[in-house]
Design a protein around this nucleic acid. Structure first.
Lengths: 332, 332
DNA sequence: CTGAAAGCGCTTACAG
DNA sequence: CTGAAAGCGCTTACAG
C-alpha cells in the first residue's frame, strides 16, 4: 500500500542500500546517484517508516515528558518550553500526566519505555525514591523539581530557597516584622524549600522565634481559609507570604471580604508569577520563576546525555528566581 | 542486551509464536502454557518492543495533537482533556504546536505521519484548505475549530455564534442599546462567528444599523487600545462585548485608567471564561466554553474512526456554550 | 561507490 | 493447541 524504500530503489534503478545511504546523507554515494534517488523519492512522496527505522537504529527521535499535571499556567508554560526546544532539534514530544500519584507516574514511565529515547520527569515529592526503581537503568532521564540528593539522574530545580529568602528580605526591608507564611502541601519539595527560605531570612533578622506558619496546599481555597484565620487573629501579622500565587490570591480575597487593607494593614506576596498575579487588585508582589527556561534547560541536558551517553557528570543545577515587587507589598 | 520475545520463549520452553499469543491474550493457548509464559515474562521483566510491534501491526497506539500553540489556559485545558481521554484508552499522546503558521502546521503533520494512528488538528483559520493537502489520505483526523464546510474530516466546533448571540441578548435584556464589539483577528473563524452572533442579535433587535466594531487580535494589548478609543468617544457605547476575555480585560483596564465605571457607565463582557475573568474587578461576565470537553469529544470521535474506519458519517458537531453573568454586566 | 544479505523483534497465516 | 517460517521496512557490515 504505502510506498517503501523498495519502491524508491526500483524507481531509481539502485539497491535499497543505496537509497538508505542517500536519504541518510551518507557520503559514500555519487552525486549523480543521490540525485536520482532523491528525485525518485520525492516523486513517489516517499516517507521512511519510523517503526522500521527505530527497530534497527534503536532510536525513536522522541522524548517523553512525565509531569504531575498538564493543566494550568505552570505546566502549560513548561510544555511550551520543552516543545520549542524539541522542535529545534527535530525531536518529538510525548506527554503524560501522573496526577501527582506515584503509581500513575510509574505507569506513565513504563508505558513510555521503548517509545522514547529519554525522559523528562517532574516529581516535586520528597519521596521520589520510587523514581529510581521505576526508571529503567538504560533510559536517560532528567529530573525536574526533584530531590537533588541521592540521584543517579541529573536534576534541575528552581531556586525556591533563594527566591523565598529574597522575598522575605524584601518584606523586612519594607518594614514588616511579623511575616507569616502560608505553606504548601506536606511532602512537596518546592513548598519545603520556600518555607525554609522564609524561615532562614527571618532567623537572619532574629525574627524566627514566633514565626507564624499557616497550613495550605497550593490551592486558592486553602489560601482563602488561611486568610480568614488571619483576619480573625487578635494580633495580625504585618505581612503574609504565600508559598504560591494562587494561595496569595485566595488570601487576598479573604482579607478583602473582612475589610483588611492590603498592603496598608498587611503586605502580601506570592510565588510563581502566574498571569493572574497582575490582574488582582492590588497587583501581587511575587517571585518570578522562568518556567519555560526550566523546561528548555532540562531538555538540553537530556539531549546532551543522548548525544554523549555517560560522559557528563550527574549533577544538580539550580535556576535562579527573581522577585517582582508590585502594589500588594507597596508602601501605601 | 534487552530481553526479547526469544528469551521469554526459551525460558518458558515454548516457541515465540506462543509467547506472542499468550501475551496478546489470544485464546488459543492452554492456561497452563499461558501461565508458564506470563511467569517467565515477568521474571525476565520482559517489555515488548513497540517499534517491532508497530512495524508489523501498523499501529502505533499513539495519537497526535497539532495545535496552534501549547501555551495559555485554553490549550492547557484542551491538552488536559485529550490526555485524560487518551489515558483511559491506553493511547499515547504526541503534541506539537504550529504557532498558527500554515507551513509549521504542515511540517508538524508531516513529521507525525507514521508515528501516530490518528491526528487531532486545531486550525482556527478561515483558509484551512491547506489541511486537506497536508493531511495524508490514509490518516484518520478530526478537526477542531475549523471550517466545517468542505471537509473530508469530522469537525468539532464551539458554538461561537450561539454563545455570542446569547451574550448580546443578555446585554440587551439588561437595557443596553449601543453594544460595541471588539473583534478578533482577521481570518480567525472563532472571531468571525462571534462577530456574526453579536450582529445577528443586534439585527433581531433592529439595532444593527450603527453597530460599532473595533479592531482587535485577541491580545490584551489590543483590548486595551480599543478601551482607550472607547473612553475617548464623544458618544460612548453603553456596553462592550469583547470577542475574548483577554481583550475584555485589557479594555477594562483602559476604561479604569480613564475613570469610566464598569458596569455603571459601560457594561462589559468577554468570551472564553479564562480563570482571570473571575479575578479582575469587577468580575467579568463572559461566555463559558468547556474546552476540556472539546478535547475529549474530538478524541472520542477519532477513536471511533480508528475502531471502525470509514463507517461513521463525516459530519460537523457543535459544542454548546453558556453565558456566565458576573459583576461587569451587573445592574449596579 | 554499490549491492546482496543478514538481522532488528515482533505477529500471523499455515501446517500439523 | 503449538511451532516453523515468512515478512513488516528499514540499516549496516561485508564483499566486490
Amino acid at each position: 500500500m504505502a510506498v517503501t524504500i523498495k519502491d524508491v530503489a526500483k524507481a531509481a534503478g539502485v539497491s535499497v542500500a543505496s537509497v538508505s545511504r542517500a536519504l541518510n546523507g551518507r557520503d559514500n554515494v555519487t552525486d549523480e546517484t543521490r540525485h536520482r534517488i532523491l528525485d525518485a523519492a520525492s516523486k513517489l512522496r516517499y516517507r521512511p517508516n519510523d517503526a522500521a527505522r527505530s527497530l534497527i537504529t534503536r532510536r525513536t527521535r522522541t522524548i517523553g515528558a512525565v509531569l504531575p499535571d498538564l493543566h494550568g499556567e505552570f505546566f502549560s508554560e513548561l510544555i511550551r518550553g520543552i516543545d520549542v526546544a524539541a522542535r529545534a532539534q527535530g525531536l518529538h514530544l510525548l506527554v503524560s500526566s501522573s496526577h501527582g500519584d506515584a503509581d500513575e507516574a510509574t505507569a506513565a514511565i513504563r508505558s513510555m519505555q521503548g517509545r522514547v529515547d529519554g525522559l523528562l520527569v517532574m516529581s516535586p515529592h520528597v519521596d521520589a525514591s520510587f523514581l529510581h526503581e521505576s526508571l529503567p537503568e538504560a533510559l536517560p532521564a532528567v529530573l525536574m523539581n526533584a530531590p537533588p540528593e541521592p540521584s543517579r539522574f541529573p536534576t534541575l530545580n528552581l531556586d525556591n530557597h533563594g527566591g523565598a529568602f529574597a522575598m522575605t528580605r524584601h518584606l523586612l526591608a519594607r518594614g514588616c516584622r511579623r511575616i507569616a507564611m502560608i505553606g504548601g502541601p506536606a511532602g512537596n519539595l518546592d513548598a519545603d524549600e520556600r518555607r525554609r527560605g522564609w524561615l532562614d531570612a527571618l532567623a537572619a533578622a532574629s525574627l524566627a522565634r514566633d514565626a507564624l506558619l499557616l497550613d495550605g496546599d497550593f490551592s486558592e481555597e486553602s489560601g482563602h481559609a488561611a486568610g480568614l484565620r488571619i483576619a480573625a487573629l487578635a494580633r495580625r501579622p504585618d505581612a503574609v507570604f504565600a508559598a504560591n500565587d494562587m494561595m496569595a490570591v485566595g488570601c487576598l480575597i479573604a482579607l478583602a471580604e473582612h475589610g483588611v487593607h492590603v498592603p496598608g494593614e498587611i503586605a502580601l506576596a506570592g510565588f510563581d508569577d502566574v498571569p493572574i498575579a497582575r490582574y488582582v487588585t492590588p497587583q501581587l508582589t511575587t517571585v518570578r520563576v522562568r518556567i519555560a527556561d526550566l523546561g528548555r534547560a532540562a531538555f538540553n541536558r537530556l539531549v546532551a546525555e543522548l548525544e554523549a551517553p555517560g560522559t557528563l557528570p550527574v549533577r544538580s543545577e539550580v535556576l535562579p528566581c527573581e522577585i517582582v515587587v508590585r502594589a500588594s507589598s507597596g508602601t501605601t
